[in-house]
Structure formats: C-alpha cells, structure tokens
Computed example of a mutant assay.
Amino acid sequence: MTLLLDGQKVQGKNLKVTANLRIESADMSGQTSNTDKAHKGFKPKTLAVSLMIPFVDRVQMIDLMRLAEATASGGELHLYRVVNDTAEAFGVRQVEFSEGVSAREADNLKAWLVQFTLSERESNPEKVEGRRAGNKVDAQGAPGSAVGEGGSNSGSSDNPELSGFEKVLGRVDKWLGGSEQT
C-alpha cells in the first residue's frame, strides 16, 4: 500500500492506514431510560497512519517531518492532495496533519515506529453545507395580536412609541447635538 501527499510518497515499511468517520450525536433522554439521540452531524474524516522507518533511512524521517511542518502562506497548515486506497474508499481527497506526529524507537529493531493523523479538509459534505441556504426565520408574535401591534398609542406606524430608555437616549442625543436647551 502506498500513501502520496501532493505526489510525494511517504517512505517507510509496514505502512498501515486506518480511516475513521466520527458521527456526533447527543443523548435526548434526560433523566429517563429513553434511547433517543439527536444527530449532530458528521465530523471530518481522519486517516491514522502507522509505519516503520529504519534508522539507516534517516532521510525518510526528515522528509516526513518536513511534510508535517509545512505551512501555507498565511501560516496555516499545508493542505495536501492525498492518494491512498483507503482514503479513496472513504472519499477523502484533501488532508492536513493534525494531532501531531510521534516516533518511538522499536524494542528489537533499529527503527522508529511512526504514527500520525491526517484530518480531512474541504470535504464534499462541508462544501454542500456551505452552499446550503440558511433556514428562514419566521416573525414571532404574542398570541392574539399581530406582529407590530400593541404598545403603540399614537396610531401612526411611521412614529412608533419609544420605550422609557429610548426616550432618555433621545434626550441625551439631542442635548449632545445642541438641538435642545437644558
């Protein structure tokens, strides 16, 4: 199995890629034994990668760290195009390094056991959610009266009655502006 990030092969032995899709939900049972859950959406898919790099292939470790530490012009993490069978099966196309990179020395081998996580960015569900129109908000009113009615004694819709606080602010505004004498 191979893993390519922007066309550059991640070198190492025993490469294993584990894909994860986290589905968020919230318990709606309160203090009851009800099993209802509220779906809160899909979180970005992640690829957990593990591999072994022999000490003699130190350049491979240096190259991997260079990929992990790469940043874009604004200081954000570099966004990589990923090529891997598992990533393709999960529909992951673009990733960035997340949650760090760890390397420990193998007990009986002269090699590092390396693990890192790649997190999906700019996924199809994310793009769809960004294009989706916002939910329309309906005007709310008290029972028995239409929105905009009630509380207005003047009967004129152009000059609605102000609250006490708004009247005080109006007087202060006029005083500061010099249009009212004290």
Rank of each mutant, 00 (worst) to 15 (best):
R22T: 15
S25N: 14
K45G: 07
L64Q: 12
F116D: 07
T71G: 04
G100C: 02
T2R: 12
V137I: 11
D27M: 04
S163L: 09
Q94M: 07
K16T: 14
S152F: 15
R58G: 00
R66S: 14
R93C: 07
E99W: 03
S163E: 04
D63Q: 15
S123H: 04
L21P: 06
E69M: 12
S157K: 10
R22N: 12
K136W: 06
N135P: 04
D63F: 04
G130Q: 12
N153M: 11
A26S: 13
K43H: 10
S179D: 13
A87R: 06
G12I: 02
W112M: 02
F42C: 05
T2W: 09
E96A: 13
K167Q: 11
A106F: 00
K174M: 05
N84H: 08
A19Y: 01
A72Q: 13
V101Q: 04
V168I: 10
T71F: 01
M65G: 13
K136L: 10
S156A: 13
E76C: 03
G91Q: 09
N135G: 15
K16P: 00
R132Q: 09
V83M: 11
T86F: 02
G164C: 03
V59Q: 13
L169C: 13
V101K: 03
L79W: 07
A48T: 13
N14K: 01
R58F: 03
F42S: 04
S154I: 09
L15N: 02
S98V: 02
L47A: 10
G178E: 01
S152D: 15
L77W: 12
N124Q: 11
E24P: 09
A146F: 09
G177S: 13
A133S: 12
V128N: 06
D107T: 04
L47E: 08
N14R: 02
M1Q: 06
G7D: 08
R81K: 11
F55V: 13
K174Q: 08
R93T: 12
G74A: 11
Q140A: 14
G91M: 05
T182Y: 12
K37H: 10
T32I: 07
G150Q: 05
D158W: 04
T182K: 10
D173C: 08
V49K: 05
L118N: 02
V172S: 01
